[in-house]
Amino acid sequence: MIEQLSVFLENQPGRLAQACRTLGNADINMRALMVADTEQFGVVRIICDRPNSAKEALEDAGFGVSVTGVYAVETPDRPGGLADVLEALGAASINVEYAYCFLEPGENAAVNVLKIDEGDARVVLEASGFRVLRPAELYEPDTES
């Protein structure tokens, strides 16, 4: 599974900048970032190098952070790519909590990040011919897994 950071942020001007600067100062490179927000607070989901050191750096700077396991599925960068993945999961009655996507520059491939709480999504995805990425393919891991 991919280790994704989930950072709790109050809705305050400059707070996201502070979180990003903290990672920058810790020499941690981000691969993807997605903000989910409510009226009063937001959760920023980040995929980055050395996620555990990143968590520590953010906590030292006063942020609330947890590490969440997500799937990263590679699809060709073409219309319907993500729909194929979701249909395969839907057919196996696997529910997706949330998803976001980013492109691999020059690779003609998209990376689809999926949060799935139940069911063995990896088996279903691989049986349907999708490539589920390992951590080292996306970022520099800092735990053995």
Partner: peptide, 18 residues
């Protein structure tokens, strides 16, 4: 204050807590 060891990922759970 949310506790530092909370699972922060799920907006729904945070809203539920609120």
């Amino acid at each position: 204050e949310v506790a530092p060891d909370t699972e922060f990922d799920e907006i729904r759970e945070l809203e539920e807590m609120q």
